[in-house]
Design a protein around this nucleic acid. Structure first.
Lengths: 223, 223
DNA sequence: TTCCAACTGACAGGTTTATGTCAGTTATTG
DNA sequence: CAATAACTGACATAAACCTGTCAGTTGGAA
């Protein structure tokens, strides 16, 4: 676990909020600079809010981070209700905070309407290692919202790279990986993609509308 | 990443909520039973709510799991406020849910009082791999609350096993690892322990009180 | 333009990790 | 009691990963 320990050390070094050069960190931890660059990749991929700037160095944006949480449906309901109430508050800062928190939670839950108990059967599980496809998530989410078709380069588990046009419907966190449920125009069927296996996404100008048989509600995971 | 893929597959197999024998999973994924047992360990260590029963098989308890979340201090405040409001609600189910959510969040944040902006400078970072010391966390938390001294077997990074009596003060999540800040009676000083490196904890009958110089507020991480 | 330091890709080791096999033990059910 | 299936430990081998080295490129600031 030497590497793991080093990653921990790097976080400790960075948490003073000051600038640090990769070279300095490398000297201090007695590894090569190259290794530090690789470690920074790992940290970023793991969600540590560290930022590097060429010619400058590394810094962390300070934030509070919650580890994976297991909630019951009732707790989630309480959470949503609470945010709705606070969002009505007079204090503009609190109002904004409540709204953005609600958005974050929303973003992280199945995009499906967040209420029916049935939905929770397809629950999400904590894990983490692959926040790999992180970069793709923003465009995917916005495409789901705006009902915009996507061009997808997807590397299947067997290593084959495929190109498809899809209607993105639903994102889900499986703890270890995020998945994207979509209607695939190529296969004319529902497909679930692992976001960490997506090579590239680009939004297409084409929009899509609800068509019977192509909606999320028509999708039967067991089928 | 073969192993990672298999772990994902196991979750998918288990998520039907039915019983599964290790042997069946092993056959289906074309690995040995031994490997499945090891995988189950990994899943449990990663927080997946899977349960094995001898002579029976494996099942998952269904739950909603939130991935690591980055919050601003304002968002956390909104969250706490929201839960406090909902906890006053008439509906007993909602009340209970709000209370337990508040507890969960509380349990996961620095044990230090959860309000001052300064506190957040020692933020927590998401990660995950080592939820190793998970089992120790409950006794440690309760010892912090009840101000009970702990007997600690701690394996230092250099591999040396040490025994100490400590006053547990504060737990913190660093994304990759949890840490325990404590007053160490052996060294007569503050020490930060990584919970994943703790071999064993046992609560001692002895209680401790606030003594000048031995309180969390006397601890200067930079010193 | 030059300097700086972050970044990237490739490659050859060395080390670590994962896996299967085997030989057990333990808790539960009938 | 026997049967079942989860669990554990040890060990050799194979596969994956980590690391340093080297030779670049990129973007910002002076």
């Amino acid at each position: 676990m030497r590497r793991t320990d080093r990653l921990f050390d790097i976080i400790q070094i960075l948490r003073d909020g000051k600038l640090h050069r990769a070279q300095d960190i490398a000297d201090r931890l007695e590894v090569s600079v190259r290794t530090i660059y690789r470690d920074m990749d790992t940290l970023v991929a793991s969600g540590v809010p560290v930022e590097g700037e060429r010619g400058v160095g590394y810094m962390v944006r300070e934030q509070i981070t919650l580890p994976p949480l297991n909630l019951t449906p009732a707790e989630l309901k309480a959470l949503n209700l609470g945010m709705a109430i606070v969002a009505e508050a007079a204090d503009p800062d609190l109002k904004t905070a409540a709204e953005s928190l609600a958005d974050k939670i929303d973003a992280v839950l199945p995009t499906q309407v967040v209420a029916e108990a049935d939905t929770w059967k397809f629950a999400v599980y904590p894990f983490a290692d692959a926040a790999r496809g992180l970069a793709h998530m923003a465009p995917i989410r916005s495409a789901i919202k705006s009902r915009q078709k996507l061009q997808l380069s997807y590397r299947r588990i067997d290593g084959v790279l495929t190109e498809r046009t899809i209607r993105p419907l639903h994102m889900e966190y499986w703890g270890r990986v995020w998945t994207l449920t979509a209607w695939c125009e190529l296969r004319a069927g529902f497909r679930v993609f692992r976001i960490d296996l997506i090579e590239a996404v680009s939004p297409l100008p084409e929009l899509f509308t609800d068509e019977p048989g192509k909606r999320l509600s028509d999708y039967d995971p067991q089928g």
